[in-house]
Design a protein around this nucleic acid. Structure first.
Lengths: 207, 207
DNA sequence: GGCTCGGCTAAGCGCCCGCTCACCAACGGC
DNA sequence: GCCGTTGGTGAGCGGGCGCTTAGCCGAGCC
């Protein structure tokens, strides 16, 4: 039988790990609201209203508004890291793995743009401890991409002068997709993923 | 005599067009506060306090808090567009002009990171009319970069399949510098500008 | 049937927000 | 010397914020 994770298009619908149902509905509402207006411009009343509940219901499932952001950010970073790890550890040349990593990472940022926007741009709204936890995850994200580029340099596939700087640029390029991508625009997430994979291969001298 | 525009390092100190002095101090304070905490998380009391004035003083020079953001965004976009136009219209090959454009655009985003952060990331906090005005400026920014790339393709210097997509990616890469650049980090604005100019030339097949 | 208890709501507390108002000091023109 | 203008202040208004509390309701257990 189906695990109920599959939706149209083969994409996995996330947040199924969040239970009970009311907590998930609140979290999904918070993602939408934070993505549209930003964390600080979003009120707890708005979140509860989108979830079809009273303002007080939010505090049954979450201690504070910040805890909501923390949970969203944590789950989102875990997912992003998982995507990169899967691509980085598959078999193939460094160029194939880098193209796969960039393509899938970009597809996630474009296809799940609301989530990605919150995850990537609301870090500063977290308190010191929560932010430190997320920053540690980001370092792992950086390490995965840097690892592929180092492999390509070592094997002679890539021609890169500044590995850390190029890693930074590649990640920056992918992450910023969450800022400008428009669901109603002319490009699909798949098209942007393919374009970006090509551009990144050129950046590392493998194009 | 000096125009009082020059400061150490040859950089032009901006905001000198904002008068009187108190209005400029408030605007500079607002740039710092918006960059640190975001528009919505910044209070008018904080802005006035940073400028050494009472909360009420702000409203002598600006009608609303949003007018402050609008003025900052307008001046910043004018400056960014000016930088790109200067590079795009100099003499030289398309590769030289693109490298110059990316280098100077990135140096501005890194060196004036607080301003750039507000300019590039607080657009959604503006009302519809103000946002429309800024969006029009952004289209001109896009057109300048696209023009250089089209020139390079026409002359055979560049090898680009998707001109508009590549333009988008180049601008996205430059703009996102304002998000991650750290003044206390290991790289100077000049170094990042040179690295990015090289990466972009590779992206267009001229590296 | 009666009791317990988790999930939820209506009401509202205390605070701080953007912004306003009544007033004041410094200063140039006549 | 007096007055209008300019640029400032201290106090505070109305409102919306994050969050809390008291109590309601229906499902599960004996």
């Amino acid at each position: 039988m189906s695990t109920a994770q599959e939706t149209t298009g083969g994409e996995v619908e996330p947040w199924e790990e969040v239970t009970p149902d009311a907590a998930r509905r609140l979290l999904v509402a918070a993602v939408e609201a934070f993505a549209e207006r930003g964390y600080h411009a979003t009120t707890t009343r708005d979140i509860a209203g989108r979830a079809g509940m009273s303002p007080a219901a939010l505090y049954i499932h979450y201690k504070t508004k910040e805890e909501l952001l923390h949970r969203i950010s944590r789950i989102g970073h875990d997912k992003a890291l998982d995507i990169l790890r899967t691509a980085a550890r598959r078999e193939g040349t460094a160029a194939e793995r880098l193209a796969d990593a960039v393509g899938s990472f970009v597809r996630w940022h474009a296809g799940r743009r609301t989530t990605a926007r919150v995850v990537q741009y609301e870090l500063d709204a977290l308190g010191p401890e929560a932010r430190a936890e997320i920053v540690a995850l980001r370092r792992q994200v950086d390490a995965e991409v840097r690892g592929i580029i180092e492999d390509g340099v070592a094997s002679g596939e890539f021609d890169v002068l500044d590995v850390q700087g190029t890693t930074l640029a590649v990640l920056s390029l992918c992450i910023d997709v969450a800022r400008w991508f428009n669901v109603d625009g002319p490009r699909t997430p798949e098209e942007v993923g393919a374009l970006y994979a090509d551009l990144v291969l050129r950046m590392v001298g493998a194009g």
